[in-house]
């Protein structure tokens, strides 16, 4: 009986994770695509030195997000991990997090009036959950330098 209840809870969590998780992922991807189209005019330039000599104001811009996996994906990932191979659940998780972080950084730059972001760096961290287990949530930070034009009369 106890085993049956445990199995029931497991199955319910699995179903909940699958339904809610895939719905959340679809919505998130739709929102990412929409905002990416809106922010396409802001360019990311991964070079270490800005290719300009004219004076401008440099400003650190930054975007970050923490995204968690659902229960279904976590279970599937655990199984695939035994067999080896591509873990699609993790791939979409990290991709979503990275695209979201880039978008937030771009929004930050857009709010300041920047059009290019130079020397973009990423940092990805796996956050540990309760009991120090892998929790399946990932933080991605994207940061770079937005160069903003200075008004000439304000210079010197």
């Amino acid at each position: 009986m106890g085993l049956l209840i445990q199995l029931g809870i497991f199955a319910a969590l699995l179903a909940l994770g699958f339904l809610a998780g895939s719905r959340a992922e679809r919505k998130h991807y739709a929102s990412i695509r929409e905002r990416e189209a809106a922010l396409r005019h802001i360019l990311l330039v991964p070079v270490r030195r800005a290719p300009t000599r004219s004076p401008c104001r440099a400003q650190l811009v930054c975007g970050s997000v923490v995204i968690g996996m659902d229960y279904f994906k976590m279970t599937v990932a655990a199984f695939v991990n035994i067999l080896g191979g591509r873990i699609n659940a993790y791939e979409t998780l990290v991709e979503r997090a990275r695209r979201e972080a880039i978008l937030r950084m771009k929004e930050n730059a857009a709010a300041l009036g920047g059009s290019h972001i130079f020397n973009v760096k990423f940092s990805t961290t796996n956050l540990r959950g309760q009991n120090n287990q892998q929790s399946g949530c990932v933080e991605v930070v994207a940061y770079g330098t937005a160069l903003l034009p200075v008004r000439l009369e304000a210079g010197n």
Binding site: G21, I67, D70, E100, G136
Partner: peptide
């Protein structure tokens, strides 16, 4: 955050 982790999605508290 632990509960949110069941259904997936952004964990705003941790962000």
């Amino acid at each position: 955050a632990g509960l949110k982790n069941m259904v997936g999605g952004e964990l705003k508290g941790y962000t």
